[in-house]
Structures are given as C-alpha cells and as structure tokens.
C-alpha cells in the first residue's frame, strides 16, 4: 500500500464537501475518481496533497502521515497537477526544472539536471524545450506541467482532469505516458476525469463519488449501468467492445 485515506471529512465554512472518505491505493495502481461536477473530486486531491487540510481523518503516504509533514516534504512524495494552469514567462526547460523545487536547497545539482533532461526526452518535449510556455498550445502546456510533476519524482501522482483541454491524440499520449511511468516506477496515479470511456481505458481502479462520499469503489466490475445511472442520473448501457467495457448514454 502506497497511500491510504482514512475517514476524511472536509467542509468549507458554508457547506460540507467530503464525508467519511476512505480508500487505499497500491503501488502500480492507476485510480480514476469519477463523479458529477462539484461532488468533491478536486477537493479530495487537494486534501491528499495538503493544499487543503481536512477537518477530520488521516492520510498516509508510504506510512508517513501527511498532516505531520511540511509542504516541502509532501511535495517530495506527491506530485500534483491542478486543473487550471497559469503560464508565466518561462521556457519549457525552466518550467520542468521547477519540479525539482522540493529537492533543491540552494541551487540545482547535476542529478536534478539529469532527471529534468530524462523527463523532457521521455515526454518528447526536446523540440520545444527552449520555447516560452505562454506561447505553447494547450496540449503542449499540459505535457509540460505533467513533466514538472514527474520531475518531482513523486511516489503518488495526483492529476486533476489532465485531459480536459486535449485533443484525442494528446489525450491518449498523456494517459499512456502516465500509465507507463506508474508501472515502470511502481508509483501510483490518482486522476479525476469526466470522460468515462477514457477513464476505463486508462485506469484499473475506480471510485465513484456521490454527495461527497464514496458511492462505489473497485475494478471494472463496478462499471455497471446501475451505478453510473445512480451517480450521474443518466441512463446508460455498458457494452463490451474487444473485451473493454464501453459506456453509451441512452
């Protein structure tokens, strides 16, 4: 087990968001968190990353309780890609170096540079590594911020709707990269998504959130018309296409 979330509650002053959320993630898992808009998917990711502090519950990464770690220590273990990206006047190379920030004391080392270089190559960013990120396309920028999160050498990767701005090819590219890294390095990825079919293609575990709490959790067996209709209030059929379940709204 690499991450455990135990009875987490989170509320904003005006309303409750998460209630009694509890799940575990193993090494090599790609977990998709699914649910309607506003159900608390992003909030859950931010709680795991200590950007938000849950009022109750314990979250541990590799046996370390994150509430007891500094943000810097958390960042050494958890990489996070937020839903919205702001692009400053940096080159791609600079943006990826920033991923080494949690490990830097005064300046970058040889090892930092080697990691950055490796990740830039892995994600195929070499051809525009000296371009400014405010001049990139949405797909390129998304790859850069994922590269930055990977440069953190995280044990757990949190991605908040990583594919929402991408075209079909870039969606598949980005998800493949994440899948490969997760398997090769035996880390875990937790991804929030809206496209069920993309989630099915990418993830091996799923959590459906409803009203701030876990409605269903498990593998492909929970991708059923009943559960999806309960969660999204839309009738669907789940067909099998080449042994992969496909969700079709009715």
């Amino acid at each position: 087990m690499i991450l455990s979330v135990n009875n987490v509650d989170f509320r904003y002053p005006s309303h409750n968001v998460l209630k009694n959320v509890k799940f575990e993630v193993e090494r090599g898992d790609c977990l998709a968190i699914l649910g309607t808009n506003g159900v608390g998917k992003s909030t859950l990711l931010k709680c795991i990353n200590k950007i938000l502090r849950p009022q109750q519950g314990v979250i541990t990464v590799e046996k370390d309780e994150i509430s007891k770690l500094s943000l810097r220590k958390v960042a050494q273990k958890i990489g996070y890609v937020s839903q919205r990206q702001e692009s400053g006047r940096f080159t791609v190379f600079d943006a990826v170096i920033l991923g080494r920030k949690p490990h830097i004391t005064w300046d970058v080392t040889e090892r930092d540079m080697a990691i950055v270089n490796h990740i830039i190559k892995m994600l195929g960013l070499e051809s525009f590594s000296l371009r400014y990120i405010d001049e990139l396309s949405g797909g390129e920028l998304q790859k850069v911020v994922i590269a930055r999160a990977l440069a953190q050498e995280p044990r757990v990767l949190l991605l908040d709707e990583p594919t929402s701005n991408l075209d079909l090819k870039n969606q598949l590219d980005v998800l493949n990269i994440i899948q490969n890294v997760v398997r090769e390095q035996q880390i875990a990825a937790i991804v929030t998504m809206h496209d069920l079919n993309l989630a099915i293609r990418f993830a091996d575990k799923f959590i459906f959130l409803k009203k701030g709490t876990i409605f269903a959790a498990g593998g492909f067996e929970i991708i059923t018309p009943e559960i999806i209709e309960e969660v999204y209030a839309v009738p669907v059929a789940v067909e099998s296409f080449r042994a992969i379940p496909v969700v079709v709204p009715l």
Partner: peptide
C-alpha cells in the same frame, strides 16, 4: 505558475 501549483511544489 499559480498558487495551487506552488503549494503542490512545497
């Protein structure tokens, strides 16, 4: 790069 990203970077 944004406040949340900064927090995510520690």
């Amino acid at each position: 790069s944004g406040e949340e990203t900064a927090k995510g970077l520690g």
